[in-house]
Design a protein around this nucleic acid. Sequence first.
DNA 1: CAACAAATTTCGGTATACCAAATTTGAACG
DNA 2: CGTTCAAATTTGGTATACCGAAATTTGTTG
Lengths: 228, 228
Amino acid sequence: MADQTLPAQIADQLRRDILRGILRPGMSIKERDNADKLGVSRTPLREAVRILATEGLVELRPARSPIVSIPSVKQVADDVEVLLAIEKMSAELACARATEAEIDALAAIVDVMADKFDTVDAVEMFEIDMSFHAGLARAAHNPSLADIHSTFLSRLWRSRFLSAIQRRNRERVVDHHSQIVAALRARDTDAIRTALGAHLDRLAPDIINVITQEIEQASATADRKDDL
Amino acid sequence: MADQTLPAQIADQLRRDILRGILRPGMSIKERDNADKLGVSRTPLREAVRILATEGLVELRPARSPIVSIPSVKQVADDVEVLLAIEKMSAELACARATEAEIDALAAIVDVMADKFDTVDAVEMFEIDMSFHAGLARAAHNPSLADIHSTFLSRLWRSRFLSAIQRRNRERVVDHHSQIVAALRARDTDAIRTALGAHLDRLAPDIINVITQEIEQASATADRKDDL
DNA sequence: CAACAAATTTCGGTATACCAAATTTGAACG
DNA sequence: CGTTCAAATTTGGTATACCGAAATTTGTTG
């Protein structure tokens, strides 16, 4: 837990807080306050905030406090559009390039998911889900592609999470993942395209629904202030 | 030229130096030296280096001097693969979403290119070329997509430049661009796909050739040191 | 009581000081 | 002459000091 740089660790901490909703969209992230709270100086915290900015999780405003991004519906829709394209591309490349070991690892994730099916809570289940998609991106053997995939994944993490826990269709997810793994094993590009399509096509409208709701709620609750 | 933040300006300066080859791949970017040279302190320079790191132009090594990235053939090939996918996706979306004004702007760029044909130097011609592709990405009306497009464009800028000046086929470039604009006007997705395909398909092998050559040269010339 | 203006506080941006790790240098020894 | 180890220096990482611009508060006035 300590081989990462300090700014990266701070970014991890802040990212968790944002994705879990502890730092809510629109909240300001004051450098001094948060630095004190985490027991570090402003310099590494500042750098951590920049990291999160490149991920789109916070928004930098010149000469003003950075705020937790409050993505518009349009922005989320755009991000989803890109993420879908990246995942489709990754899957097709993985179909040609994934090693058997990588496919085994993905299959193992599906097994874990099927096992823990109704014992595990939403957050953990969702993290397993995301690890499957990250693994699929990595199996394309293109680090640049995997990079931007993880960027958009984290950018949409919270929306996707809110969407996922809403409709608890775990068995369908496991089923889809199994089909994807099967297509990988068969090296069948067409099959993986349809399997992933079935898995992801509902994603866009679902996520956009969730975000629309959240924005409506947010406009009801007015301005917020950073706690202690 | 002053509405940008200071780190962004510094990053611009360093980026130019890298892309123009003044800062050669493998050179170390020492914080104190470059800060002094540019008349700023380490803090904003440091931040500028981080910006370039996210663009892939410099490589950060924990507790060591950052160096100008010396991309491997594999990395360049991966980047090209991603860039091609992004440009194809952008073009198809632009076909459906570009406004007439945006298409006009692209057409104007093609005209400028045709005009300056044999009066302008390689660098300027290339910058016009790149502005066309950036404009095409923007016409897709998806800022997230345009963002990563510009990232990969700058990451490959130098390779693409070296490749472009090598084979001076300006008329073919103008011709291709014209076809792309025509396809946009006709809102013909298939046509734009083939036009862009013709334009870009030669890109991958060309760039990879150039990089392979440069790496061979670099291994001949041994280690380098930062000047003054 | 409302509204505007001035003073004060807050906060991000930049510069600088300090520290620890890493590199380099050079001297001593084989 | 080469190798090795330690002292000195270089360098990135972090903390802090300082500054100017925002934002907030307060006091005054209509």
